[in-house]
């Protein structure tokens, strides 16, 4: 599944991933491949994108998350890559 993380300034991440855990407005939300179309408002917290054993972390706040046709789009007003990314 394709995942893009976009901030107002740039596309922060764009690539394939197996799972996404996002801080939605009402709690954490996990998304795996072939999720149903979904749109939700983001709260603030840690966004985790897992691909091939590597988990990328981003601190996000405000914006939305959209899933259509097996692609996830995260648009956040503030995005900051977490320093302790690769694991």
């Amino acid at each position: 599944m394709r995942v893009t993380v976009i901030s107002p300034e740039s596309a922060v991440f764009d690539g394939e991933a197996e799972s996404v855990v996002a801080p939605a407005f009402d709690g954490e939300l996990g998304i795996l491949a072939n999720h149903a179309p979904l749109m939700t408002v983001l709260g603030s917290g840690m966004l985790r994108v897992k691909s091939g054993g590597v988990t990328r972390k981003f601190q996000v706040r405000g914006g939305f998350l959209q899933v259509i046709k097996n692609s996830v789009r995260v648009l956040a007003e503030h995005v900051q890559a977490d320093p302790g990314t690769a694991k």
Binding site: A24, D26, P37, T40, V41, F64, I68
Partner: peptide, 16 residues
């Protein structure tokens, strides 16, 4: 597309 909207379209718009 037939979305699951959470919460609803109105709240989403208000945020966006």
């Amino acid at each position: 597309p037939d979305y699951l909207l959470a919460p609803d379209a109105g709240t989403l718009l208000e945020a966006l």
